[in-house]
Amino acid sequence: MIWFVARKLGGMLATVAVASVVIFGALYLAPGDPASILAGGHEVTPATMAAIRAQYHLDDPFWVQYGHWLGGLLTGDPGTSMVLKEPVTTLISSRIGTTALLVAYASVVILVIGVVSGVLAGAAGKVVDGALTVVTTILMAAPAFVAAILLIWIFATKLSWFPVFGSGEGFGDRIHHLTLPALALSGGYLAYVSRITRTEVRAELAADHVAAARARGLPRLAVLRRHVLRNAAPPILAVSGVTVAGLFAGTAVAEQAFGVSGLGSLLVQSAARQDLVVVQVLSLLLVAAFLVVNMLVDVLNAVLDPRLLTERTA
């Protein structure tokens, strides 16, 4: 088990390292001169320009620049926003709470509703299954921004149940503000998790060991819990993990649509104003969050199904 975790951890670090090179490289190659953005779009003297280039190491070779950047990241100083002139750490720390709460909220919605509806669709008969299939198909087909517009129209404009804008103050108010964004964000993912759960539950219900458990006279619910859900859990968990990890990137749309001040909207806005320093750090942060969630799921899966520990040793 320790080896398994260590191997996963090593793989994760390697992936982050590669991702950092790719992210830095992609933005290095991106069109536009960072120095002129740093100058704020004003006409400046060549001397000032040269000073800016020197300050930001813009004339150094790629690997030297990357080294500076990485060094800054590792020492906890990823730099200062090129446009807002604020430290990136300040920008992130003031927003990360909101985004984390939004992701957590959406995850709970996705996991609870997705898994419960999937189990119902898989185990409760044709009528329930048919109805849920219709719902999940619609949810899957609707992109987050369409869902956002619909939700705003129904719950904010017509019913006035939820605010349409802002992040809120205090936990209760924030939850209130984040409900619509969380719903908009979770729709498609929820349908996906529901479908996977349904398929897995179906497959397990047809398994021989489930028939054997029934033949042993175990109560229906015990069979469902101990033999169907317990065995269907690892694949459901794996898919849910990828889904939740993907939410970090998905926040960009939901936060933007609902005017929530979080990392997602910061990423979108920073990209729009070519604030490379912020974009780089945020991209890497998203990759890292994705990988951490995935690793947690892998480890949890290995606990649920110890066969995974031995299978990948080769």
């Binding site: 398994a207 021989d208 060991h209 054997a212 458990a213 033949a215 042993r216 101990r226 033999h227 317990r230 065995n231 690892p234 649920l304 199904d305 110890p306 066969r307």
Partner: peptide, 16 residues
């Protein structure tokens, strides 16, 4: 009544 099935691998829940 107890039943013994053909394939024990399929009969016993693999994760428990």
């Amino acid at each position: 009544v107890a039943m013994v099935f053909q394939d024990p691998r399929a009969t016993v829940n693999p994760v428990r």
